[in-house]
């Protein structure tokens, strides 16, 4: 927890930098204009850059926290919303809600679609993990779920009457924070807060689960309740996040892993510290995609995968070496 102030400071710095970033790199003039009360500056700062920053903080924090929660729950350092297919299924749920028009009829239809998709994915994984707790089973099931979800997402988009929908699979599978509005922030916020609170309430249970299910139960922890808390928490927060920004991969993998030594490998403080950690990484990646630039911006998920995928490989090799 000694690292907490430093992480919060880094978050603040990245936040300030994020507000100063235009679509083509560093452009702090807008902030000055907005502070001077100029309308164009205000509009760009409040309606474009602020939602982008807020979603980066919220979604990044969610992914970090969800990664830490899932890793604790599955007792597995490779568990992550993206890797195990939860994000992919959330995207599918959101796509169905969005393109069928459910999200226009129902005020919270979009995040609810994402939550439903995420919930189904985690239930399937938990059912599998209870039969066969091996790491490889979880990962292979995640691969299958992800593949199925992305195929169904592409199918749903293809069946959509809108010709633009087909190419939007890129947004849903790779995620982006660009051109989102405050409406998206408000849409996701209640689910992210509720889900985050549920995940944070898992701390005691995840600590006990360090020693396995039997010992955790002998310590008075109800595994059923712990699972429900974690599953609903992850589904709410990740489902709603993916519904407004698409699936941003690997944040939930990298962040808990890097921060774990800073909290002496304890699952409960890791939950808390992964929130600013995830936010920092996501903001940094989002700043990077704007620095790289290009008229059609690089998807955020591309940036996180460029760091995350090699990292994932390294972890797999490391685990293989430790458990021959």
């Amino acid at each position: 927890m000694r690292a907490m102030p430093a992480l919060l400071l880094a978050c603040a710095a990245f936040s300030a930098l994020s507000l100063c970033m235009g679509p083509h790199g560093f452009a702090p003039g807008i902030v000055a204009q907005a502070l001077a009360g100029e309308e164009t500056g205000r509009l760009i700062l409040i309606e474009l850059r602020l939602p982008r920053l807020l979603l980066g903080l919220l979604v990044g924090g969610t992914l970090g926290l969800a990664g830490a929660t899932l890793q604790g729950l599955f007792r597995n350092p490779l568990a992550e919303p993206g890797v195990i297919g939860v994000s992919g299924c959330a995207a599918l749920g959101a796509v169905i809600a969005f393109y069928t028009g459910v999200s226009t009829m129902l005020p919270l239809g979009l995040p609810l679609g994402g939550v439903a998709g995420a919930l189904i994915a985690i239930m399937v994984l938990l059912a599998l993990a209870s039969r066969d707790p091996r790491i490889s089973t979880l990962l292979l099931a995640g691969v299958a779920l992800s593949a199925l979800a992305s195929a169904l997402t592409a199918l749903a988009l293809n069946l959509s009457p809108n010709p633009y929908a087909t190419v939007e699979v890129v947004f849903w599978l790779l995620g982006s924070l660009s051109d989102r509005s405050l409406e998206h922030v408000f849409l996701a916020l209640p689910f992210i807060l509720a889900g985050g609170a549920l995940m944070l309430a898992c701390g005691r249970g995840l600590e006990a689960l360090t020693l396995g299910e039997d010992t955790a139960r002998s310590l008075g922890i109800s595994i059923g309740r712990l699972r429900r808390l974690a599953v609903i928490g992850v589904a709410f927060a990740v489902g709603a996040s993916v519904a407004v920004t698409g699936a941003i991969g690997f944040v939930g993998l990298i962040v808990p892993h890097l921060l774990r030594p800073l909290v002496d490998h304890r699952p409960a403080p890791l939950l808390l510290i992964s929130i600013p950690g995830g936010a920092c990484l996501t903001l940094a990646a989002d700043i990077a995609v704007r620095l790289i630039g290009g008229e059609v911006e690089l998807r955020l998920g591309v940036a996180t995968a460029l760091i995350g995928a090699p990292f994932f490989l390294y972890l797999v090799l490391n685990l293989a070496r430790r458990a021959p």
């Binding site: 360090t210 396995g212 490998h265 304890r266």
Partner: peptide, 13 residues
């Protein structure tokens, strides 16, 4: 209760 050959999931102190 102490289970047989229990292990810890994380390298805690």
């Amino acid at each position: 209760y102490v289970e047989q050959s229990g292990t810890a999931a994380w390298p805690v102190s």
